Amino acid sequence: MGEFDAIRPYADTEVHAVLQRLFNDASFLKILTHFRFPRLARRFGWLLKPLIARHLRAEFAGIDNVASLQIKIEPYVDRTIERATDGVTYGGLEHLKPGEAYLFLANHRDIVMDPAFVNYAVYHAGLQTPRIAIGDNLLQRPFVSDLMRLNKSFIVHRSLTGRREKLAAYQLLSSYISHSIRAEGESIWIAQAEGRAKDGDDRTDSAILKMFHMSRKDEPFAEVVKSLHLTPVSISYEYDPCDLAKARELYIRATTGSYTKAPGEDDASIAKGITGYKGHVHLHFGAPLSDPPEDPKLLAAEVDRQILGNYRLFPVHYLAYEMWSGQAPEVRVPRAAELFPAEEVARAESEWQKRLSACPVEQQPYLILQYANPVRNQYRVKAGLPL
């Protein structure tokens, strides 16, 4: 068994066998049947599942490596993105060189779509797609793990409880990230902090940065970071399909002190995040850090400066900020009407009111928070003020 076999993505030699395992997985076929034929699945699922399995075997016949698989599924990803967005734009790709591997450190709002949009941008720019870090809490069912590891995902063991086990897991993760970038020339995508920023407050956890250094502690911290070509990435959604669910969770946590997920809640979030309406989406790739500071906290502040400074604010963000009780008096934030055409603001006001109307009154402050926080953070960063 190889050093990284427990966490790495599947290799080309494993693709065919894993695909066949998926096409025989009853749970996977059931979900596909409900997704493709929602009205017929309940009564005729027993008939539809073998037909779908047969179609998949024919569709993916001859696929025996990861690159071919990604080329095959790329049109499906594109169609999904086109249906759920009003367009995807991206900037900063001039910072990236073909043939170079990068450590993409990104803000995190959606479990599946954040790395999917990064893949979308670099793929259409003719660059190699990164390997994707995903928490083992999302891989409870074998077919989900198979799907993700086929698509260049590697596993972050977050469910471990013992201190020694956690330390060993993060040591292995650190070593794998360094090996992937430096030895194999494969880029990495990882979130700036564990879990999604449900309140819209994107902050880099310095513990993540320290983890990158764990496997190379005999080298200076800044040199290790520089060798990984750490590149901050901002992902901006005009509308978050899961915003109402996040507002509910934040409200329950605030009023009861805890929140327990219902069975299947992660699956529902994934489905909503993929298919739900997002409006416009913008990605910005910052400049790789060529002179990182030696202090992890100072490095976190620099990453935040790039992620927050390059975040694309849409009219809805300003509309939410105008309603927010947590406005920053030390910075002047213009109104949406001062920055955007009247028609664009009117469309945003209509969509924003729909979301507010669908949100219980007591949960609305937490909905507003999600869209207002990026405004506060960006204007504080641009003014040179601490977050």
Rank of each mutant, 00 (worst) to 15 (best):
E322C: 12
L228N: 09
H280N: 13
G286D: 11
P232N: 05
F221S: 04
H280Q: 15
K272W: 14
K210V: 14
P296G: 06
A191R: 03
P293L: 01
F285L: 04
L319F: 04
N310Q: 06
A320E: 12
G286L: 05
Y259H: 01
A222H: 14
H284W: 15
L244Q: 11
I190H: 03
D201P: 15
L250V: 05
E219P: 03
A193R: 13
T256R: 00
D304Q: 01
D295I: 01
H229G: 08
E184T: 03
S325W: 10
G264N: 01
L298A: 14
Y277N: 13
Y311M: 12
G309R: 00
G200I: 09
S227R: 06
R305A: 09
I274Y: 00
A271H: 10
K261P: 04
G257F: 07
D304R: 08
H317T: 09
A300R: 02
D199A: 02
T255M: 08
G195Y: 10
D202T: 02
S290Q: 14
E184H: 02
Y239W: 11
R203G: 03
Y239N: 11
W324G: 03
I252K: 02
S236A: 07
R248M: 07
T260L: 00
E223V: 10
K226S: 08
P232M: 01
R312D: 13
A193L: 07
V303S: 03
Y259G: 01
D304V: 00
L209Q: 07
E194R: 01
K278Y: 12
E322H: 13
V225H: 06
K261D: 01
P263T: 03
G200D: 12
E223A: 13
K198V: 11
R253Q: 06
I190N: 00
D202S: 03
E184G: 05
K278D: 13
S234L: 10
L230C: 04
D291M: 08
A287S: 14
K210A: 12
S206L: 04
E294K: 10
K210I: 08
D304G: 00
G286T: 07
H317F: 13
A207E: 12
Y251S: 11
H282V: 08
I235Y: 15
K272A: 15
S236C: 00
H213I: 07
T275H: 14
T204F: 00
H317W: 13
Y251R: 10
V281H: 15
L228D: 02
